[in-house]
Amino acid sequence: MIKRLTLMTITFAIAASAFGQGPRAKGKGGPLSIEGQELPELTAFDESGKEVALKQVLKGRYGVIVFGCLT
């Protein structure tokens, strides 16, 4: 029993530390399978058409990316 409780505590601690501040908030959309993975090396274009490395523009700080289009 003690062993099981210890294991549960460790599991919870790992999950909480992975997020930083506890479990993720629930949202309208379900989680995508890429969650928890390393951001791949990807290239996009800024508004002027200049090629940018996604990792570089986000480097060293938290980044929020939202996909969208006009339709």
Partner: peptide, 17 residues
């Protein structure tokens, strides 16, 4: 119309569909 949060060390910590 997905959204994701990337940590400073380049990990996708949140990815919502």
């Amino acid at each position: 119309n997905s959204e994701m949060i990337i940590s400073p060390d380049g990990k996708i910590v949140i990815a919502r569909s």
